[in-house]
Design a protein around this nucleic acid. Sequence first.
DNA 1: GGAAAATTTGCGAATGACTTGCAAATTTTT
DNA 2: AAAAATTTGCAAGTCATTCGCAAATTTTCC
Lengths: 127, 127
Amino acid sequence: MTKARKAILEALKASVQPVTAMMLAKEPSLSYDQATVYRNLHYLEELGMAQSFILHCTEHGTERYYSYRGADCGIHHHWFHCEKCHRFIDLGSCGYDEQMHAWEKKWDFTITDHTFFLTGICSACKA
Amino acid sequence: MTKARKAILEALKASVQPVTAMMLAKEPSLSYDQATVYRNLHYLEELGMAQSFILHCTEHGTERYYSYRGADCGIHHHWFHCEKCHRFIDLGSCGYDEQMHAWEKKWDFTITDHTFFLTGICSACKA
DNA sequence: GGAAAATTTGCGAATGACTTGCAAATTTTT
DNA sequence: AAAAATTTGCAAGTCATTCGCAAATTTTCC
Ligand SMILES: [Mn+2]
Ligand SMILES: [Mn+2]
Ligand SMILES: [Zn+2]
Ligand SMILES: [Zn+2]
C-alpha cells in the first residue's frame, strides 16, 4: 500500500462526516494531486473500505461524498444532509435488507446497490 | 405556457421510464435547444409536475433523470435501475413517510427531500 | 540487498453534463 | 395591436471528474 493510499484512507477514517475528493485534495496535510485522490478513492471503494453517494446541493453543486467503511468492510450507513450548514447526520446502519429482499423476490431482479439519503434543515439551523 | 414547455411536459408524461434532459433534447420530435430543455425541466420540477434524481451508471455516467408527476402533483415514486439494459422498474409510490417522520422526531431536523433508488440486474438480463 | 517488472503518481489537457449572457422571438398584459 | 415580460437559441463558460504519459515509487524475484 502506497503512502498516498494510506494517508487518504486515514483521512477518511478520521472524518466524522462524508467528504468529497476535492475536500481531501485541498487538505493541506495531505497535498496529493486531485487525480491521485480520485483514483485512490475509487480503489478504496472497490476494496470495500469506503462507501460513497452522489449528492446535489444548490450551494456546492453535484459531488460524490465518501465515508469510511472499515477493514472488516463494516456497516453500510445512510445520511441526512443539512442544506444550510452542509453538515451530515448519520442515520445509522442501513435497515432495508428485508424490504429489498422482498423487492428482489417480487420483481426477480438482483440488487447490487442502493442509494438513500435525506436532505433538509437541521435542528441547529432551524433555530 | 409556451410551446416548448408544453411539448416537454407531454414527452415526460408519455414516457414510461425516467428520462434525461439529453434524451429529450436529442428526441427528433422535440428539437428544442438543450438549454431550453434544461430550463424547462427545472421549471416543471419546481412546479411539482416533474420529479428527478441523479443516478450514476458506469456506461452512461452521471445524469439527472426526470419523470412525470401529474397536474395534481401526484405520487412520489422510486425506481430500480438495471445496469445492463438501463431500464427502470417502478417500485411504486414511496412508503417511507412513517420512517421519515420518526427520524424527524428523533433528530429534530426538517426533511425537505429524500432520494432512494436501487441498482442491479433485472430479471431479463439475468437470463 | 539490488535490479527488473509492475504499479502509482503528478501534471496538464480533455470530457461531458449542465449553466449562463445576450439578442431575437414568443407570450402575456393592457 | 402595442408595450412589457418572459422564453428561446446560440455560443461560450463552468466545474467535477477522467485520462495520457513520463517520472517516481512500490513490489517481485534472485
Ligand atoms: Mn451541501
Ligand atoms: Mn444506466
Ligand atoms: Zn444545519
Ligand atoms: Zn436489464
